[in-house]
Amino acid sequence: MQDRENAMDDLDALFGAARARPAVPSDALMGRVMADALALQPAPRAVVAPPAPPQGLWRGVIDFFGGFGALAGMGSAAAAGLFIGFVQPTGLSDLSAALIGGQIDSLSLMPSVDDLIPEVTP
C-alpha cells in the first residue's frame, strides 16, 4: 500500500507541475479568435440625440428676440404700459407733474429745427 500512496503523492506533484505550465496559444489561434470576435461584435451603441423640435415661424420670432425669457419680459413690460395708459393712476400724474413741472401746453420735439430754417432760406 506504500507504493500506492507514493503513486498518489507523485500524481499530486505532477498535477501541481502541470498547473504551473499554462497552455500558450499560438499567435495564429489568437488571431483567428480575435477575427471572429470583431466580426460578430455588435456596432458600438450610438448616443441618440433627442429629435430636433420643428422649426416654425414662431420659433424664428422667439429666437430673434432672444428666447422665451426675453420675450416674457417684453410681454410683461408691454402689459404694464397698457395698464398704466388706461388706468392713469393719480399718483403717476403727480409724479409726472413734479418731474416735468405743471401743465404742458406745447412741447418742442425738435428744438433746434427753428434755428436751422433761417439759414436754409436765402
Binding site: M30, V33, M34, A37, L38, Q41, P42, P44, R45
Partner: peptide, 12 residues
C-alpha cells in the same frame, strides 16, 4: 456586447 473593441482583446 456594447461594441468595445478593447474588451474583445482583453477577453481573448
Amino acid at each position: 456586447a456594447n461594441g468595445d473593441r478593447l474588451a474583445a482583446t482583453a477577453l481573448t
